[in-house]
Write a protein that binds this DNA or RNA. Structure first.
Lengths: 217, 217
DNA sequence: CTCAAAAACAGGCAAAACCCCTTTTCCACA
DNA sequence: TGTGGAAAAGGGGTTTTGCCTGTTTTTGAG
C-alpha cells in the first residue's frame, strides 16, 4: 500500500443519491476520503461540531432546502475559515458563480464536468488553495463585459413586495390597499422601476423580476 | 467470489460527474454492472447500436440537452422495448412523473433518495418489471384529486405563439402585426384564453403559461 | 359541393395601465 | 431644531387593456 497524504472531505448535497455516488467516486481517489455527508447547511453545522476531525475541503451544493450553499458558505467563513469550499452546482448562471466566489468559495465546479476534473480540482485546492475550470473563468470574463445582473439587495423591501404582487392578477389599486399605501404611491413605484429597469410595462417588469430571481413564481 | 447473475446497466445523464459517480455506486452492487454512460438520448442511440450486449435497465435522466428523457423513452419503447427504463430525476412535479410513466418508464426515482433504494429499485425492476417509491405513489394519488395540469398539446400553435409574445413588452396591436393578424383576432385569442384558463388579465395569463411550461422565459 | 363549426375580424365602451408634473410627509443629521 | 432629500401622495391627462355583442371568412367532414 502506497503511503500518501489522505485528506478528509465532506459532501453537502440534498440529493442523497448524488451525494452517495459522489462519495464513492471521491473515495476511489487515493489521496482523498469522504469523512461525512450532509444534506444541507444545518446538517453540516451539527456534523462539524461533533466531528473528531475537520474536513480539509467541503464539496458544497448551492440549491438546498433549509440552509442553502450561500448561507452555508458565509457560516463556514465565519466559523471554520480554514476549511476550503468547493462549490458544486448545476447553475452556470454568472450571478450565482460570482456570488459564491465572493462569499469565499475556493472553486466552482459545474456538475457536468468530467470526474477526472474533480480529482484535479481537489488536488489543486489542497496545493494552491483554489481551482477554477475554464468554463467558469469564461463566464467570469463574460460577466465583465455584460452589465452586472441585479441582486435582491438592489431593491427596497417595498419594491420587492410590489413586484411580487405585480405578478398576480391584482390591479394596482388592489396592490395599493394590500400594501396599505395610496394608489399614487404604487404609481410611483411602478414609474421608478420602469425607469431603473428599462422596461415599458407591467409584463416587462414581471418578466425582468422573474428572470433575475427577484420574485417567486 | 460469489456467483450471482450480473445485469448490465446503462446510465443516461448529461451531468457527467453525477453519471460517473452513479456508475461507481452501481458497480458496487454485485448484481449490477454499468455497461456504458451516455450524456443524452442521441448519444444513447449510437452507443446502443454499437453495443455488443444490450443493457437490461437504463437509468434515464429527464432534463437533458439535445434529446431529453421523454423523447428518449419514446424512442426506446419503439426500438428496444425489452430494455427497462428507470427514470431518474430531480423533478417531483406530478405532470412530469405521469408523463414519464405513460411513456413507458418502469419506475421513477427522485434523485434525493437513499442509495439503498436504488439497489432495491434495480432488483425489483429485474424481478417484477417495475418499481415505484412511496413518494411517487403519493404524488400519483394526489394527482387524481388535483385537476390535470395542461400540456402544450392542449393549445393551438397560434395560441402558444400569442402567449409567448404576450410575455414581452409588445402591445396587443404590435403582437397582431408580428403574427400577421388583425388586432381583433388577437383580442379573440386573449378572450378565449382568459376564459379557458380562468385568468383575469395579461399578467395572469403569462404567469399561468410560465408555471405550466407553455412558454419560455 | 354543402354546410356547420372554427377561426378571424369588428365597433364600442369602461376600466386599468401608463405618464408627467406637483405637493405633502417623513426622517436623518448637521 | 430646522432643513434637505427621499418616499408618499395627488391631479389630470393619454393609451392600452379587457369585455361585451356581433359579422365575415376559412376550414374540413361527409
Amino acid at each position: 500500500m502506497k503511503q500518501t497524504a489522505n485528506y478528509p472531505i465532506a459532501i453537502v448535497d440534498d440529493h442523497f443519491l448524488f451525494a452517495s455516488s459522489l462519495s464513492k467516486l471521491v473515495n476511489s481517489y487515493e489521496s482523498f476520503t469522504v469523512q461525512f455527508q450532509a444534506t444541507n447547511g444545518k446538517d453540516l453545522q451539527q456534523k462539524l461540531e461533533t466531528a473528531e476531525q475537520l474536513p480539509k475541503i467541503i464539496l458544497l451544493d448551492i440549491k438546498m432546502p433549509v440552509m442553502d450553499g450561500f448561507e452555508t458558505a458565509v457560516w463556514l467563513q465565519e466559523h471554520y475559515p480554514d476549511i476550503k469550499i468547493l462549490a458544486l452546482s448545476m447553475e452556470d448562471d454568472e450571478n450565482t458563480i460570482l456570488r459564491m466566489l465572493r462569499l469565499g468559495a475556493n472553486g466552482y465546479l459545474l456538475k457536468d464536468i468530467h470526474p477526472d476534473k474533480l480529482k484535479v480540482a481537489l488536488e489543486e485546492v489542497i496545493q494552491k488553495g483554489f481551482y477554477h475550470t475554464e468554463k467558469v473563468a469564461e463566464h467570469l470574463l463574460h460577466s465583465l463585459h455584460q452589465p452586472a445582473k441585479p441582486d435582491k439587495d438592489d431593491f427596497r423591501e417595498n419594491e420587492l413586495i410590489f413586484m411580487q404582487l405585480a405578478s398576480t392578477e391584482m390591479t394596482y389599486s388592489q396592490i395599493a390597499s394590500e400594501m396599505n399605501l395610496s394608489p399614487k404611491t404604487i404609481d410611483g413605484y411602478r414609474h421608478e422601476l420602469f425607469n431603473r429597469l428599462e422596461v415599458k410595462n407591467r409584463v416587462g417588469l414581471v418578466m425582468y423580476a422573474l428572470k433575475n430571481g427577484l420574485i417567486e413564481f
